[in-house]
Amino acid sequence: MPGKTALIVLAHQEQNSFNYAMKEAAASSLKRKGWRVLESDLYMMRFKAVLSRDDITGKARVPSHFRYAAETLQAWKEGRLAKDILVEQKKVERADLIIFQFPLYWSGMPALLKGWIERVFTRGFAYSFQAMYSEGPFKKKKALLSFTTGVSSSMFSTSGLNGDINVILWPLQNGILNFTGFQVLEPQIVYAVAHIPQEGRAQILKNWEKRLETIWDEKPLKFLPLQDFEDFTGGFVMKKDVEEALSDSKYGPTVGQHLRMPLPPDSQLRSECSQL
């Protein structure tokens, strides 16, 4: 896609890792198709993952009671965020597509990647309570999670010991990516990577490169739009008419808003188009 820009955020400590190889394969494939590719190799950058008062420059508005979200919002408005945050925000602004490449640790992202999100996705820049979910600031951008696991896919099945991978993905894909407005693409998952022989790994990299050739044409996963909820005192709740319209469905609408019905199968793994 000539004219498009991708950002690959890598969170792995070793350059001889399969995650690094996935990053390299993605960058090469996208460049061949005319993409501009930006990279944030968080371990190599020694990116600071811990939130602190040092994340703003100048005086705090209320130094006696430092409220991180409020202070960074004001600093963002005034251009007073820390330099390393500003550099990463500029990359996000330029990117049409963001790929998060990481190993799954403790059913989530590595701490360094979570810290990047917490520091870079500041209030105002990445969300507000007037602009979130389907109306979020990044609604014209696409994003996907590309990660490896230590165990097989059967362990992440509905009867597996680790539990349904759709449930594990929900807070990452809905609570982070969808919350900030991204069109969330199907995740790229390499299960039990340490147990895959070399020829198998080579094929996985080829398949990943092939997918990325047409990545911009992919349809995103489905989430309920913000308009399906109304702001009652204490938080947003699904509108009664929306809930009633969904009440006769075989499955709940999402993993999170399931209305006490069976969870929609693989809704965090495949878009409705790819399930047809």
Rank of each mutant, 00 (worst) to 15 (best):
A82R: 00
Y105G: 01
F125W: 05
F18V: 05
E39Q: 10
Q173M: 09
Q275A: 12
Y133S: 08
Q13H: 12
A60I: 07
G256K: 06
F236N: 10
Q101F: 05
G181P: 04
F129I: 06
Q15S: 14
R53I: 11
Y68C: 03
H12N: 11
K23T: 11
I168P: 03
M132Y: 10
P197L: 13
R119V: 07
A26I: 02
W116K: 02
A194L: 12
G136R: 03
K91R: 07
S159Q: 13
G160R: 13
Q203G: 04
S146T: 11
R270P: 00
V184N: 11
R61G: 08
A26P: 01
H12F: 01
A126F: 02
K141Y: 08
G115M: 03
W35V: 10
M155C: 11
I56Y: 02
A245F: 06
H12Y: 02
I117W: 07
V37Y: 08
P171E: 13
I215T: 08
W35C: 07
Y20L: 00
V184M: 12
Y105N: 09
R36V: 12
W216K: 06
K114F: 02
K206W: 03
T180Q: 06
A75Y: 02
F125N: 03
T158G: 05
T158D: 11
A111I: 02
V167P: 02
G124F: 03
R94M: 09
W106D: 07
Q89F: 01
G3L: 04
L10C: 03
L276M: 12
M22G: 04
A143D: 09
M44A: 15
A69S: 10
T57E: 12
A49G: 15
L259K: 09
S274Q: 10
D164I: 12
G163S: 13
Q130A: 15
A69T: 07
F129V: 05
L226A: 15
K90N: 07
F125L: 06
H195A: 13
S17E: 06
P197E: 13
S247N: 10
W116S: 03
S134R: 08
D164T: 13
N162L: 08
Q173L: 08
Y251Q: 13
S271G: 14
K250A: 11
E39L: 12
V242G: 06
A27G: 10
I85H: 01
K141E: 09
F156A: 15
A82D: 04
L42A: 12
F138D: 04
G79I: 00
P187S: 09
T72R: 01
M132V: 04
M45W: 05
A111Q: 04
V193W: 14
T5S: 03
S29D: 06
A245M: 12
V190P: 01
P110T: 06
